[in-house]
């Protein structure tokens, strides 16, 4: 549907605000052309844009392995997975557009570094085991984050998440299967898997964001039911889900504090280095410059394709117009 950017300032129209509050309270969905508070719209645009950017940048760490995948089977799987990430980015950009965001502007904000994407994609993928661990950890963490977002209060975002979640399960399973295959291989391959696990574990835990007492926007997002669970709750779920999988696989998670807590019925685990998270988000991760540089180059080098397609469309439209005139 065409989007509308018109909205009254907060509190200016109490009736609209009440209607909006009632929609949220009844757990109904807010739809694109409904009135919504400016803060809700801005928060959503920021969150959906960052989410979209993460999917698009997320194509790169694994994309590096497409030409070097060890078999045609793995290459085809990886291709399909990276193509899915592009698709997820596009679902999300469309959702952001229903809020009045401008697509070109979003791309510009990403490649100029004004809008962020998930810190996890700023880590390198030096071995093929990284492809497996990304599927297992990073897509597993994404599932923890995204399943509750399928019930997010904003309709187009929730619907995009339903589609994404259906596809994400393939991503996680192909990663785990890849790792199982490597674990059945040589000593060297097993060491490669353990090394990748050691490098990705903590950055994966950081994906859930800062701890709850240091997450300024969380409470408001939860009140608006954009988010359903706190960062720490989702992080805990991810740990509880992953520990038995690690056991089955035969790898060790690199956390000496990790242990089952009988009383809580959940795992205790160490605290990720949140100063590292902040540093990487601010731009000082191992691959930030490379990721943005490559996205910018792809955008700039693709400009002629976009222009040619637009010129072709214009020519076709003119031709159709002329044919109609002749016929008349």
């Amino acid at each position: 549907m065409p989007s509308s950017t018109s909205s009254s300032p907060d509190g200016a129209d109490e009736r609209l605000q009440e209607q909006f509050d009632r929609t949220i309270a009844r757990d109904q969905r807010v739809e694109p052309r409904d009135w919504m508070p400016d803060g809700y719209r801005k928060t959503l645009i920021r969150q959906i844009a960052q989410h979209a950017h993460s999917e698009i940048i997320g194509m790169q760490p694994e994309g590096d392995w497409i030409t070097r995948a060890p078999s045609l089977r793995r290459k085809a799987i990886l291709f399909a997975k990276v193509q899915d990430e592009a698709g997820h980015g596009l679902y999300l950009y469309s959702a952001a557009e229903t809020l009045g965001a401008d697509r070109e502007d979003l791309v510009e904000r990403l490649i100029s570094g004004r809008q962020k994407y998930s810190s996890i994609f700023n880590y390198p993928t030096p071995t093929f085991a990284d492809v497996g661990v990304i599927g297992w950890f990073v897509d597993g963490a994404a599932i923890c984050n995204q399943v509750p977002l399928c019930r997010s209060s904003y309709g187009p975002y929730a619907r995009a998440m339903v589609r994404v979640c259906k596809e994400e399960s393939f991503h996680q399973r192909q990663g785990y299967e890849l790792l199982m295959t490597m674990m059945r291989g040589t000593e060297e391959q097993r060491a490669m898997v353990q090394d990748a696990v050691d490098r990705w574990w903590w950055p994966s835990l950081m994906m859930f964001g800062p701890p709850d007492d240091d997450s300024p926007n969380s409470a408001r997002s939860m009140a608006w039911r954009i988010k359903r669970h706190s960062n720490d709750e989702l992080r805990q779920r991810f740990v509880d889900m992953t520990v038995p999988q690690a056991g089955k696989l035969g790898v060790t998670l690199p956390d000496p504090e990790l242990r089952w807590n009988e009383e809580r019925g959940r795992h205790d685990f160490g605290t990720p280095d949140f100063t590292e998270l902040m540093r990487v988000i601010k731009g000082d991760g191992p691959c930030n410059a490379e990721r943005i540089g490559r996205r910018r180059a792809a955008h700039e080098e693709g400009a002629w394709v976009r222009e040619a397609a637009a010129a072709h469309a214009a020519k076709q439209a003119r031709r159709e117009e002329q044919e109609k005139e002749h016929a008349a």
Partner: peptide
Amino acid sequence: VGSLRAADDRM
């Protein structure tokens, strides 16, 4: 099912 941007109908 959603929306997308394209130069023309065929695309």
